[in-house]
Design a protein around this nucleic acid. Sequence first.
RNA 1: CGGGACGUAGCGCAGUUUGGCUAGCGCGCAGCGUUCGGGACGCUGAGGUCGCGGGUUCAAAUCCCGCCGUCCCGACCA
Length: 478
Amino acid sequence: MAKPILTSQDTDFPQWYQDVVAKAELAENGPARGTIVIRPYGYRIWELLQQILDERIKATGHENAYFPLFIPMSFLEREADHVEGFSPELAVVTHGGGKELGEPLVVRPTSETVINHTFSRWIQSHRDLPVLINQWANVVRWELRPRLFLRTTEFLWQEGHTAHATSEEAQEETLKMLGVYRDVVRESLAIAALTGEKSPAERFAGADRTFTVEGMMRDGKALQMGTSHDLGQNFAKAFDIVFAAEDGSEHHVWQTSWGVSTRLVGAVIMAHGDDFGLRLPPAIAPYQVVVMPLGGDDAQSTVEAAMQLVRDLEAAGHRVKLDDRLHVGFGRRAVDWELKGVPVRVEIGPRDLESGTAVVVRRDTREKASVELERLIQTIGERLVEIQQALLDETEAQRLTRTSLISDLDEFKSTIAAEPGLYVAGWCGSASCEEAFGDGTGASIRCIDPFEELPGSEPRCLACDNLASHQAVIAKAY
RNA sequence: CGGGACGUAGCGCAGUUUGGCUAGCGCGCAGCGUUCGGGACGCUGAGGUCGCGGGUUCAAAUCCCGCCGUCCCGACCA
């Protein structure tokens, strides 16, 4: 039987994560601290996700554009909360062309400032609104404790920036894009995430309100998978983005911004992976099917049958890999593809050729089935649909199992240490009570008043016992 | 950025305490042959600035100083 290839999740989840990122050839560390080399297999996952998101972003009326990597330091300083929030994690360029710069340039940690500077020149009239822009880019935030995909100093993301004539429109946009994220996370990444608002403490620096998509990983910790911000008029005022209304009066625009990053690759790894490796949802799997001819005396004919099957599967619209490395033993090849999380593996050996069948193995359950060749294409298509759904169902079930209602602070603190998960409680809204939740537990409010239905919380605050104004979802997080 | 552990071949490690000839082992890699229904085997072979820089010494992987990087725990975060 198989020797252990990865540290088991139960033994050491962070070690398991590092093992699987390395062994599935997703990514490795770059030479400078906090940097990441995304390997082809990992990058393909990102590309597939990117393609799906890009279509959705365009379908909701947004256009892609590109803004500069370097931003004058003074731009950051225009919005007080913004600069305060980002200062600790800025990378600053002080020299260029061998000379000290008159004004330092920051490497964008996010692009609100450059983009809004530009918006102020683009927007004159209500006829120019709304402006709906998206950018695919890299950003830099100096990280003190990096982890591949989850938190790297440089990461890839998509950032949407919009400007609207009314507050209502901006609010609607904020929630619309949150919904797009929730849907993509659910339908493509197969993760049943929670959506809701961030507490003021967790809010984006410069936003009036921040909404989040929070996923739960297999170790019971939460991961912020995307955010959507209602920026109000904060940046409009800082960058003087003004439009003339129909009646000639002048107004500042109302704005939003929203983004998801390569962290989502980390989310897929941790939400679905098991002790055998990745389990990729077919929607974003670089290869949805791997076809493995077996060697032996009949190698020639099994390889031929495998190649024919690959052609047929490709014709049916699937992403397929032929693994005809006959110099590598069967077990090794099987283990490789399990590590890499390919949803369906097809084995064709001499016995199959004789009986006119092939063995179809699904990665999520590792179940094997012998399937007749005539039904193979159809069966595999069905399996892929089933696997996509099964992975989602698993995360949904797991989230429900690991969501508990809690009303006693001491009990909460002892319980969350032993059983990580989502804890639903009442919260009075005060920052001191929010701190009290995290004190000694390392947990934080992941979101408040989630849109998904959760067990109803106590009407009183978990910490101070005053009347609760919010339902808080508390968890340890990445 | 604080506390702790660590850095020797692509990966995992021994050797460092007590300085001493040509720095070893397993996996992986290359060639040949035999194999293939859950990490195959034999033979042959390649691969090392011992993280980087300085210092001590007749002599440094080994001792001292500085820096870089990794992992864990905290504080900060997509």
